[in-house]
Amino acid sequence: MLFILALLCGGLLAGRLLSRKRELIRTFDRLTTWSIYLLLFLMGVSIGTNKDIIANLSSLGLKAIIIAAFSLGGSILLSVVTYHFFFRKYNGFAKNAENSGRESAPEDPTPTNRME
């Protein structure tokens, strides 16, 4: 966990130093997307080649799916409540600070990484 945090801090620092180079930062946004695909593919491979998981998938898998579904269902539904009461009005932590004084700005429908 500490190593992950160290990598993240290193990245943040590098990002701060490069923040004037917009084109480069956008390239890293695109690289992030492709590494997400790579990571998911590799996770699939490691599950597919794990004989323990594949062999037990039918017997124990169903129970695991049910418990996961209830855990996720409860979490996601409660998060709708938390979001509604504490986050929605707060709409885009940073955006508020910038737009203060201006009338409610229309929400940007595109993913944030596309923002100029």
Partner: peptide, 25 residues
Amino acid sequence: SMYALYLLIVFVGISVGGDEKFMHI
């Protein structure tokens, strides 16, 4: 996959740290 994750974390750091609104966040 572990190394892919490490790479990804660095990329995320750069793209969050390089965001113009970083200090506001």
